[in-house]
Each structure stands twice: as structure tokens, then as C-alpha cells.
Nucleic acid binder design. Structure first.
Length: 562
RNA sequence: GCCCCCAUCGUCUAGUGGCCUAGGACGCCGCCCUCUCAAGGCGGUAGCACGGGUUCAAAUCCCGUUGGGGGUACCA
């Protein structure tokens, strides 16, 4: 039975409830901390192994920054022989969104960020299922007087804040503003008897330093004002589930899961002093912190953090929908984390372990142009069948019509993708993402290609060649057409047909004397190009003709002739 | 308001007091090649945010200013 301390110890006296009263606030079968320490023992891991984690919130939106931090965590764990965990931080029931779990699965799966121990012994991995754990340690802190019950209402809290702002005092629940910190047993018991809802607050040590310094694995020594706030560690007793705040969950979870390195966004730096106090109060061994610079976006006149609401590229779904290959995105992100890797070939960049000490400390800009370039390089390194497979996978989800055609015309599609890709030294880089396939290669597929509707089709008239000349030229070409194997010989047919129809032999010649010709070999070639592809921009004409086959080539040419 | 983080070409960066007249990559611009585009080859543009110190010497160290980012919640 607890008794009041003698008078001379009063200045050290911490008001707290009788242990029995405290325990009655919690389930009777709650384990003791020691039992949990045993249940979740230190991991047996090689020297230097890092146990890391990502703690996403199920808000129905996976931020690219989350992917970035997750990738870093996973890489560090993997390269040191440690373990990477995924812990769903669902302690905010208000923000939770239906279907968020599948969203995670898709997003993290696409980029290979699955947890190393999805069903491991250190679970559960959803914070909403870890209530017992938080309660155990909250009760312990309460018993030791390191935490206390706070019955302040939201209105009182708002009022306190308003008064602090008015008097220019720092906002927060501390000192004379911490109205329940030194409440007497009687006050506490009365509130309890009245059934008023309460939260559990951390009793911030009074004897602590005014400033604290700590080591950050990326930034080195950091200094910060010590935390003075009696922050909430357990949310309202009125809720069905007694959930912890992020701070308390961080301490309890990362300790019990035996996480060694907490690698998270820079926005957490300000909370480290609190986290250190919490770890110390709980008697936990401190973890190593590393704070990652946030991903930014350029705006006119500066840069800002990527915003979920304003920037489509802030969400991971954007990259999946556009069809950016995962390795390309990983390559890009790794280059951002560690500039050295941005200048090294993809394969090497993906296999070189990240080093915390080499991380940049300034927030990098997400540069879509650069990503697209890297992605094009990556796709150019694949074989045609590989590209086909990936495009098909993408299309099945985002363009079912295209997927159907691709499946029906597999051989044609693979050959089309192979144009200027297979058997050449520098493969085309016209595919930056899977969604580029339709616009770039769709014309190869007869069922998709809209034929040119005669010489007055607007795709033709843009070339400024008189319709009757177009028809005459194309007919000449058709008449003598031979489906030749040899590229120069095949192309000569265009030259000859052009010459017969009085086209200038070179653009230069045409420019010198524009009234003497209907166009030059350039315009003539473009007519054939438009007939075959519908566009003035395409891969090599002969290569296209070979893939299309003689019949299809002639069909398209005839359609242009009108 | 208070506290914290950050600052080299447009972007990612190299740079740890003299090797810096600041290097590379991407982008951009130009030229070449050429039947278009893509690719490729060659060349070019462009930066130490500002102001004070310290020092024989500063992009590099210190202070300040400015700018950007973050925190200051029963959000994470």
C-alpha cells in the first residue's frame, strides 16, 4: 500500500494515484512489461545488422516520399543482413480510408517493398491490434508516476492555447498550463467517479536539460530545445480502442519489435527530444535515428514539398498508372538518396548498398523529365518480348482494349516493338513508360490503325502537297512496289516514284526553286510515312513495311491514294 | 511568435582551407548524320543566395541576413 511521503521529501513528491486505482483502469489480465520483454526477445542477428521499418498510415494514398523512405529502409536492412518491417500505423481512426490495405499491397508490391516478416514473431504489425502492448506500458508509467491522467476537455485545451497565443507564450501543455499534472488524489478520484473521459499524459521530467543533443546517422550531431510538454501518450478513454499517439507507439513498437534504426522523414526531427525522454522513462535502449530530406517539387519562384492534393506525381499510383517500370523508379530514387548512384549504370546502382553517411541533407526535387529519361534507358535495355510482357501487364489493368489486341496479335506486336530495337547498337528510346506504347506503336496493329481517308485527309494536307499529286505519286509507287528485303533498295522505290512525279531529288533543291516542284524527296517520304503510320514521325519506314507485310502495306497505300 | 533542418549550373551533384579560371551527369541550345522521329557524334549555355568576419589563402570555418522546408495536435 502506497503511503504519503514524509514532509522533507515533499519537493520530490510526485502526485499519483494508488496502484490499485491505476490497475483498476486496465484489463485485469494485462501482462507485465517483463513478460513482454520475454515474449519479444532481442533478435539474434549478425554484427552490424540493421532492423528497420516503414510505418505508413492507411489514408488511401501512398506518397512517393513513403516509397522513397521505404526503399531506403528495406535496402539498409537487406545490405546489412537485418530485417525490414512494415508496420501499419492506423491509430487515427478518423483518417482511415476503406480499401487502403489493398492500395498498400499494390503500391508496395509493385516496387518490391514487401516486409521481410509479414507474419513474423514480432507482430502484430497493425497498431490497432497492439492495444495490449501499449496499455501495459502506459499502466507501468502511471504506476511509476511517469504519466498521469488528464481530464481536460477539448474546450479547456482550446482555451489554454488561445491564452498562450495571446500572451505570446509557447503553446502546449506544460508548467502552470498543465492543469492536471499536479492534481490531487481527490480531484482525480472525483473525475473518475464522475465517469469523465481522460487521456494519459507523459509527465515530462523536470530535471532534464534545457537543450538536448543527439546523433543523427545522416546529419551528425543535432541540437534541440528539450521537450517540456506533457504530451498525450494514450488517447481518450471514451474510444472503444485505447490507442496510443504516434510518439508512444514509436517507443513501444520499435522497442518490442527490436528495431535498431529508425529511418524516417525529416519532419520528425523536432520530436526526437520527446522520443528520447519516452525511451528513457520506459527503460528502453535508445535506437539510432536517421532523418531523410523530403522530396520536393519546383514551383514558380522556388520549391516546396510535394503535395498530395496539388501534385499528381506525389502519389505512387501516378507512377503505376503511367506505367513507369519499377526498376527505373528505384534507380531514380536511389540516385536521389545517394548522388553517386545516379551516375552509375542501373544494374550497379540497384545492387550497390546505400550508405547512411552518404545521404544528401537538402530536399531534392522530383524531376519527371529525368525519371522519364532513365526509364527510357531502362526500357531500351530490354528485349522485345520483355517489353511486350510488361506492356501487356500494364494494359490489362489500365487499357483493357489494348490488352485484348495485344494478346490477339502477339507476334505482330513483338515484331513491332523490335523495330530499331533488336539487332541494333542503339535501341530506340521512344518508350519512356508503358502507357507510351499506344501512341507510339499502336499504328502497327491493323485493328487499331485508322486508315488515311484519301489525299484530303487532314493528316496528309498538312504536308502541303496537292491532292492530285499525292494520288498520282502514291499510285506510281504502288504500281512498281516490290516488298524488298534490302533497305536502300526498298527506299529507292520512293525515290523513283518521286522522280517520276517531278519531286525534287533533295530538300535543298526544292528550297532553291520551290515553284518548280510539288515537293521534295522529303515530302514524298513523308507521304508514305503518313500512309503507313498516320504520323509524320515514326521509326524507319522500311523496317515498318517489313513488319506490316506486303498486303498491309499496299492496303494502307491504296487508302491514301483514295 | 518560438524551435529545428537546409542552401554549388534549370535539375541531381563533386568539392572536408591552397590542386577551383568550380568538375561530372541529366536537361536545354547549336551543328553533324538524315526520308521524319528517336538514337548517336561534336560543340555550347549555365552555378558557389547575400553581407560581415577568421586566414597569407574561403565554395569549404564562424556570425548575421535572406530564401525554402518542417515542428509547435487525443495527425502520422
Amino acid at each position: 500500500m502506497w503511503t504519503r511521503p514524509p514532509v522533507d521529501a515533499l519537493k520530490d513528491w510526485t502526485p499519483m494515484l494508488d496502484r490499485q486505482v491505476i490497475d483498476s483502469l486496465f484489463p485485469a489480465d494485462l501482462p507485465e512489461p517483463a513478460e513482454l520483454e520475454q515474449k519479444y526477445p532481442p533478435r539474434q542477428l549478425p554484427e552490424g545488422a540493421m532492423v528497420t521499418r516503414l510505418g505508413p498510415s492507411p489514408t488511401g494514398f501512398v506518397h512517393i516520399g513513403g516509397l522513397y523512405v521505404g526503399m531506403i529502409n528495406k535496402d539498409l536492412a537487406a545490405s546489412t543482413g537485418g530485417t525490414y518491417l512494415l508496420r501499419i500505423e492506423d491509430t487515427d481512426q478518423a483518417r482511415e480510408v476503406e480499401g487502403a490495405a489493398e492500395q498498400f499491397g499494390r503500391a508496395f508490391g509493385y516496387f518490391g517493398l514487401e516486409a521481410d516478416e509479414p507474419e513474423g514473431e514480432y507482430g502484430p504489425y497493425y497498431q490497432s491490434q497492439r492495444e495490449t502492448l501499449y496499455l501495459t506500458f502506459a499502466r507501468e508509467l502511471l504506476r511509476e508516476g511517469k504519466a498521469y491522467l488528464c481530464f481536460a476537455t477539448p474546450e479547456e485545451l482550446t482555451d489554454i492555447r488561445a491564452r498562450q497565443e495571446a500572451s505570446k507564450a509557447p503553446t502546449g501543455y506544460y508548467g502552470r498550463w498543465a492543469i492536471w499534472r499536479n492534481a490531487t488524489d481527490e480531484q482525480l478520484q472525483t473525475a473518475l467517479d464522475e465517469g469523465r473521459p481522460y487521456v494519459v499524459r507523459f509527465r515530462t521530467p523536470e530535471d532534464g536539460d534545457r537543450r538536448v543533443s543527439f546523433d543523427d546517422a545522416i546529419r551528425g550531431k543535432l541540437q534541440h530545445e528539450a521537450n517540456r510538454n506533457d504530451v498525450v501518450i494514450l488517447k481518450s478513454s471514451a474510444a472503444a480502442l485505447r490507442l496510443p499517439t504516434y510518439h508512444f507507439a514509436h517507443a513501444v513498437d520499435d522497442h518490442l519489435m527490436r528495431v535498431t534504426h529508425v529511418i524516417r522523414g525529416e519532419e520528425w526531427i523536432s520530436s526526437v527530444p520527446l522520443h528520447l525522454q519516452l525511451f528513457d522513462a520506459l527503460g528502453f535502449e535508445r535506437v539510432t535515428y536517421a532523418h531523410i530530406a523530403p522530396l520536393m517539387k519546383t514551383i514558380s519562384g522556388g520549391k516546396r514539398k510535394l503535395s498530395k492534393r496539388k501534385d499528381p506525381e506525389a502519389g505512387v499510383d501516378f507512377y503505376i498508372e503511367q506505367g513507369f517500370p519499377a526498376p527505373a523508379v528505384q534507380y531514380y530514387l536511389r540516385g536521389l538518396a545517394n548522388g553517386r548512384l545516379a551516375e552509375v549504370p542501373l544494374e550497379q546502382a540497384l545492387s550497390t548498398p546505400l550508405e547512411l553517411g552518404e545521404f544528401g541533407v537538402a530536399g531534392p526535387l522530383v524531376d519527371l523529365v529525368k525519371l522519364e529519361g532513365m526509364s527510357a534507358d531502362y526500357i531500351a535495355s530490354l528485349t522485345s518480348p520483355q517489353v511486350y510482357d510488361q506492356v501487356l501487364i500494364w494494359a490489362e489493368r489500365f487499357d483493357p482494349e489494348l490488352a485484348t489486341v495485344l494478346k490477339a496479335e502477339k507476334d505482330l506486336a513483338v515484331k513491332a516493338i523490335g523495330v530499331e530495337r533488336e539487332g541494333v547498337e542503339n535501341p530506340r528510346k521512344d518508350l519512356r513508360k508503358w502507357s507510351d506504347f499506344g501512341p507510339q506503336y499502336g499504328f502497327f496493329l491493323p485493328t487499331v490503325f485508322p486508315l488515311i481517308a484519301g489525299p484530303t485527309d487532314e493528316r496528309v494536307t498538312a504536308l502541303n502537297v496537292a491532292p492530285e499529286v499525292v494520288t498520282a505519286f502514291v499510285n506510281t509507287f504502288i504500281e512498281g512496289y516490290q516488298h524488298l528485303e534490302d533497305q536502300p533498295e526498298w527506299f529507292n522505290q520512293i525515290r523513283e516514284a518521286a522522280a517520276k512525279n517531278n519531286f525534287a531529288p533533295s530538300p535543298k533543291e526544292f528550297k532553291k526553286n520551290p515553284d518548280a516542284y510539288p515537293g521534295s524527296i522529303r515530302e514524298a517520304s513523308q507521304l508514305i510515312r503518313v500512309a503507313l503510320t498516320g504520323s509524320t514521325r515514326s521509326p524507319d519506314l522500311h523496317a515498318i513495311a517489313v513488319v506490316l507485310g506486303q498486303d498491309e502495306v499496299l492496303r494502307r497505300l491504296r487508302s491514301l491514294a483514295g
